[in-house]
Structures are given as structure tokens and as C-alpha cells.
Design a protein around this nucleic acid. Structure first.
Length: 471
RNA sequence: GGUGGAAUGGCCGAGAGGCGAGGCAAGGGACUGCAAAUCCCUCUACACGGGUUCAAAUCCCGUUUCCACCUCCA
């Protein structure tokens, strides 16, 4: 059996994954700044790393997965004024929207989900340590800066040179030793929330929280740090700077997911609401959106289109349909099993697209087995497919996705009603009264009920039409 | 200016020196009273120009186009 190899942004190579502590994996993923509803780019990151987490768990590791919530920053404060509510209420509001989106996509809750504002103490301790070690300084204006020129490793993740950076246009350099020094802590402005520190009241800079929280929950060194590609600079560079200057080993491996793009360009709010998660969930189910977002390789850009989403959803329904038919024929849910092709693909830096090819193969074999009535092969295929879907977080039998269409009274009544109609249709077909039989089928079709004549007799299902077209 | 990424058949998307991933669409066939579903077959691609090699989509050199980061960003 193959073993897991993962890419590392720091070394720009793919290598064998070996955890610091045998059997344990610590992952820190940069989560959302909760200042607006999530678009699909945000949840792609969530889905990609959820697949990593599930694969590590499936591979036998005990995974500690941290995803933070940035609940204090400039944008939140501005947005709070705009929406006329306290900043903390706004943060809570959007944190819940994010949580709902993650839940709809079956992204497992993190082991711990720390909020920045809950870790001010740890941040102050970290700043004290940095100042003691001579890496940071408080010039007396209430800010605390990190002195980046002292750090050997600074900018090694993004492979840039300090002097090549374009200087920030708006920076007030009166207190900084070097214009590239960044703020660990920002002095309070009138009206803004603040916390007391030995250097004056203020609030945390963006980067500090992740170093403080990663240390709190994962220790001085941990296995994997993840986030979007756009976080490499400055956020991850600055995290490294803070943590290494504090004497921590910090992350052993960096994983970055690529963007979702639209018309070739990185997704942004300017593209409008249609790409927000809750909007897309009006056109496809959560499991289908997850399938779509998870099906591209995490390091490849995913070019979004409604047509591609619709196509992906159709492909997923085909797989799902096979699993449901296998249950009808075998009378039992498939037992998740992993095929070797799937395992090898996932171990190769989570090559989901290659892994999907193995699902297609199993699907073809399984469908043929339904035609030939080979129950053993049906079971083998269904087990393998379910095993794969489980890892991808797209198991249709997962309670998260269980729809209302299973086994309640209304469904039973509907099933009985349709079966009665189908019995009438069968009677008409037997007497070759195809006009009547087709009328029954057409009538059901018009109600959104799809009839298929199978070797085991007619079966019905609710048709799901995706609104395709558009862009 | 600095640092990265990308260009694959009608479309989407993997791969990464020899054996054409996979899906969708299209055409043909099987099955069907007709459909639907399913299965089988067909459609032989790697931006451009050089080079290396017995062999290049894959390696090297150059070119073009696009995207991103360097300011908040998943």
C-alpha cells in the first residue's frame, strides 16, 4: 500500500508525510474573517482541508484540526457601522452564516474553533516574549511591531526579497524602525474596541492571532498549516516570523489551496451575490456543491460556471442513483471499502480527480452488474464507491445529507400512490394499451416524477433539475 | 519592477520522457411497445518556435497570451 505524500509550499516539492508524533496530526487552517457571507471560494478551502482531514483520519491518524475565526479586524468594525450593530454582534452573525454553510457542505466542525477575541491573553504573552527576545518593539505610540530585518527566515515561504517588496503606500513610518515591520498590535482609536496591554490599550493585528492560537492548541511545532494561496504573503510569512522569533518550530508543512475563479479571475465580492453559498444552494444540494468543489485538485484553480456546476451535479446523481439502486436490489446499505486505485490517488497529494476516475470505473462495473443481475459484483462496486464518497464527504447515506424523502409517513403515502399509478400503467401495458400507459407516465413526469422500467420492474424517483445556463 | 501559477480534444478536467485518466456533449449500436436508465463503439488533444533523445504533452532554451501575490483576501 502506498503512503501519503503531500506538497509543501515551503520546499515547493511533494514529499512523504511523516507526523511529528506517531499516529497524531495537528493541522491549523486559517479560517474566515467573519464580516460577510461566504462565497464558494471560502468554502472550497473548507472542503479541501476537510477532505485532507478525513483522509488522514481514514489513514489511521488522530487528527487535531484547528480552524480559527477572526472576529476582530478593520473590516468588521467598518461593516458594523454600516449595518448599525455592535461589532461583536456582526461578527457573531456572520460566524453563524459561515457555520451554516460549512454544515450544508458537510464540512466537519474543527476539533477546536478558537476566536481571536478569546485569545488576547495569549497574544499579549507572545508579544512579551517577542519583546524580551529582542524581536519586537513598542515605540510608545501604543503599537507593537515586529522587526523583520532581524529574521533570517523572513519571506522564505513566498521566496521574495525584502527590498523587492513594494512599500505600502499608506504606512506611517514615524514609529517603525523599518517600513516593512508589521504591526503585532494596534493602538486603540477612539470609539474602537480595545484591550489593555503593558503598552497601552489596543487591538490585535491580523497576524498575531494565528500564531498565538496555533501555539495554544497545537504547541510549539505542529504538522500542517493550511490556507488559501493568497495568504502566503503577508499573512503566513508574518505568522512564521512571529512564531519563529518566539523560538517555536511552528508548521512543518504548508498546504495552500487555489482559488475559485470566474471568467478567469479570482472570485471577489464584485462578482455579486450569485456566487454566495446560500445562493448556489438554491440550484443544487449541498452534497452536489461539495462534490463540485472537491472534485478539482486542491492546488488547481477551479473555474466556476453554472454549467459546470450543473454538469457536476448530474454526474454525482448518476453515482448516487447507482447506490440507491444497489440498496433496492441488495436490501442493505453498502459497507464503505477503499479500492487500491483510490487509495493510491489520494496518497499522491490528494489527487481527487484521479481518484474520481476509479469511481467511474466502479460505477460502470456496478451498473453492468445490475443489468446482468450479479449481486456480488453490485455489492463490491457499491461498497467501493461508498468508501470513496465517504472520504470525499459526499456519502449520500451520511445523516447530514439525509433528505426528508426517507421513510416518513408522507413519503410512504406518496410511494403507495405512485405505485398504484404504476400498477395501472403495467396493466395497460399488458393489454398493449400504450396510449393509456404513456398517459400515466406523462402525467407523473409532469409532476416531476421520473419513471424507469428496469429488469426488476418500474421504479420512480423525484427528478432534480438544475438551473443550468447562465454565464 | 520582484515572486509565483496557468495554456491539453466541442466543453470540463487529470497526467508528466514510450503504452491517449475520467467526465460531459455529439454520432452510431444494444436493450425497450416507445421512452427513461444502463451498457458497447466512435470522435486520437496537449499555446507557439527551436533543441536534447531511439522516443517529448512531459526535459532544455526562447516567445506569446492569461491569472495571481507584493494593500484586505480562502
Amino acid at each position: 500500500m502506498s503512503s501519503l505524500h503531500l506538497y509543501d509550499t515551503q520546499s515547493r516539492t511533494t514529499s512523504l508525510f511523516t507526523p511529528i508524533k506517531e499516529g497524531e496530526v495537528g493541522i491549523y487552517l486559517c479560517g474566515a474573517t467573519v464580516q460577510a457571507p461566504p462565497h464558494i471560494g471560502h468554502v472550497r478551502s473548507g472542503v479541501n482541508f476537510d477532505i485532507l482531514r478525513r483522509w488522514l483520519t481514514k489513514s489511521g491518524y488522530n487528527v487535531t484540526f484547528i480552524r480559527n475565526v477572526t472576529d476582530i479586524d478593520d473590516k468588521i468594525l467598518h461593516k458594523a457601522i454600516h449595518e448599525e450593530m455592535p461589532w461583536w454582534a456582526l461578527a457573531m452573525k456572520y460566524e453563524r452564516v459561515f457555520a451554516d454553510a460549512y454544515a450544508a457542505l458537510n464540512v466537519l466542525p474543527p476539533t477546536y474553533e478558537p476566536r481571536a477575541t478569546g485569545h488576547i491573553t495569549q497574544m499579549i504573552e507572545l508579544m512579551q516574549l517577542l519583546i524580551e527576545r529582542g524581536a519586537a518593539y513598542a515605540p510608545g505610540n501604543g503599537d507593537v511591531y515586529l522587526e523583520v530585518r532581524k529574521l533570517e527566515s523572513y519571506l522564505t515561504l513566498s521566496r521574495q526579497k525584502l527590498d523587492d517588496l513594494q512599500p505600502a503606500a499608506d504606512a506611517d513610518e514615524t514609529y517603525k524602525k523599518d517600513p516593512r515591520d508589521f504591526a503585532l498590535w494596534k493602538a486603540a482609536k477612539p470609539g474602537d474596541p480595545s484591550w489593555p496591554t503593558p503598552w497601552g490599550a489596543g487591538r490585535p493585528g491580523w497576524h498575531l492571532e494565528c500564531s498565538a492560537m496555533a501555539h495554544q492548541y497545537l504547541g510549539e511545532s505542529f504538522d500542517i498549516h493550511g490556507g488559501g494561496l493568497d495568504l502566503i504573503f503577508p499573512h503566513h510569512e508574518n505568522e512564521i516570523a512571529q512564531s519563529e522569533a518566539a523560538g517555536y518550530g511552528f508548521a512543518k508543512r504548508w498546504l495552500h489551496n487555489a482559488w475559485v475563479t470566474a471568467s478567469g479571475e479570482k472570485m471577489s465580492k464584485s462578482l455579486g451575490n450569485s456566487l454566495q453559498v446560500h445562493e448556489l444552494l438554491k440550484t443544487v444540494r449541498g452534497i452536489e456543491l461539495r462534490w463540485y468543489l472537491g472534485s478539482a485538485h486542491y492546488r488547481s484553480m477551479l473555474e466556476f460556471s453554472h454549467d459546470a456546476l450543473a454538469e457536476s451535479a448530474t454526474a454525482f446523481r448518476r453515482i448516487e442513483s447507482f447506490l440507491h439502486r444497489s440498496v433496492e436490489i441488495l436490501g442493505t446499505e453498502p459497507t464503505p471499502v477503499l479500492g487500491s486505485a483510490f487509495i493510491d490517488a489520494m496518497n499522491d497529494d490528494l489527487a481527487v480527480p484521479t481518484a474520481l476516475a476509479s469511481i467511474s470505473e466502479a460505477l460502470r462495473i456496478g451498473n453492468s452488474a445490475i443489468t446482468s443481475g450479479d449481486k456480488a459484483v453490485i455489492a463490491t462496486s457499491a461498497n467501493e464507491i461508498r468508501g470513496a464518497l465517504e472520504v470525499l464527504g459526499c456519502d449520500p447515506f451520511d445523516p447530514t445529507f439525509a433528505s426528508a424523502s426517507t421513510n416518513d409517513d408522507i413519503t410512504a403515502a406518496l410511494d403507495g400512490t405512485i405505485k398504484m399509478a404504476l400498477a395501472l400503467r403495467e396493466a395497460a401495458r399488458v393489454r398493449k394499451d400504450f396510449e393509456s400507459s404513456d398517459a400515466i407516465r406523462d402525467g407523473l413526469t409532469a409532476l416531476g416524477i421520473v419513471i424507469e422500467d428496469t429488469a426488476q420492474g418500474p421504479r420512480w424517483s423525484i427528478s432534480r433539475k438544475t438551473e443550468g445556463s447562465g454565464s
